[in-house]
Nucleic acid binder design. Sequence first.
DNA 1: GAATTCATTGAACTAATATTCAATGAATAT
DNA 2: ATATTCATTGAATATTAGTTCAATGAATTC
Lengths: 210, 210
Amino acid sequence: MTRKEQKEMRQQQILFKAMELFVTKGFAETKISDIAEALGISVGLLFHYYESKEALYLELVKMGVQGTKKSENSPVDDPLEYFESILKGLFSAAKDQPWICQMFVLMAQAQRPGTPEDIRTLALSVDQIRFSEVLIMRGQNAGVIRNGDPKALSTAFWCAVQGIMEYHAAFPETPLPFTGWILDILKKPQAGTQMDTAPNPPGSADAKQA
Amino acid sequence: MTRKEQKEMRQQQILFKAMELFVTKGFAETKISDIAEALGISVGLLFHYYESKEALYLELVKMGVQGTKKSENSPVDDPLEYFESILKGLFSAAKDQPWICQMFVLMAQAQRPGTPEDIRTLALSVDQIRFSEVLIMRGQNAGVIRNGDPKALSTAFWCAVQGIMEYHAAFPETPLPFTGWILDILKKPQAGTQMDTAPNPPGSADAKQA
DNA sequence: GAATTCATTGAACTAATATTCAATGAATAT
DNA sequence: ATATTCATTGAATATTAGTTCAATGAATTC
């Protein structure tokens, strides 16, 4: 193995192990020495490749931003099918390519308060929720996605996925849901079967929003 | 105000502000001095009431465990209605009693790796997902909850709620979903409308689980 | 094969932050 | 009134974890 290859391999090793730990334990809870230990290398070596813990995080978020931007450029015909294929991709990746799910979780976590501001800003530069709003509107016009505030629908859907991915990162042996179950958050229910419940009591979340 | 009252008030103040910060920023990201500053008190005073940052966390998790155990003892007739009322409660609490949502998020976070072991163990002593499994089975027998692995259904439902609560803790101005949207994860779809999709491709998450 | 580069380490250094403590003064008890 | 308790502070200390660095030896270059 040439030195260049070795270098790249180490960088990847570090990057992916860091992602794994950042996602399972959280960024602040992960010590540089945790990463080094998990890889069986010294802390010093880690700093030879990445100048700081934050730089490591930044590198990961950059990767995530790049990946998300690329996927946002592929054309979509049926919005519902689009969401389904995303879900299928994520859920099946959970096994062989856990880094896909990890990246998903990492990006969402990076958007939260508590993240160093520059990294948070970068992470917020891609916004899956807002991006999906327009697809949801198209789906509503096509009659395949239920009615309601597209922003709220998009948020609900992605938060649900987020919750599932985070849980699965922490408890990998847990069974993943069928994509259909989650897709039903968006899917238009058959008339007369789902919207026939009693009106919401005043003061409830539903009432406020209606 | 008597000294005893004053003491209790301070303890509550500290506890609830700590919960707020632990939930929005994360435990490790929250400095003791953040809590003190937010309350306009000295760091020393905080240690007068709680012997360590962990003790504060432990206290909160104890509260959460107690609360959850109590709510698990109330009888349930219609499972679907039970889940709906839980959701309504959480979503409407988001405004006036944010601590309810915060506690929900805190408990779930405390169960993840990265949490100090003793606290994590305590948090894991109440398990909403497992508790709901039996309710879901009952709902399936009654024909109101969709078929499928009750554990996976329970996990999907609670993870979705978790994701929504976490997001809302970070972005409070965001609209919350209708309870019905989330409930549809569990609700049995009308025959012939939802289960009529093509069989899952081999290797997909769905296929593995089927 | 000598010189140079560079992956690697372990120990030292530093910054951040959790924790302790002696001092103060207001509230309470005797 | 006097003594005691205790909420409160700010500064001192301890600890943890991030970061730097000089030394080493194997790989690469000339």
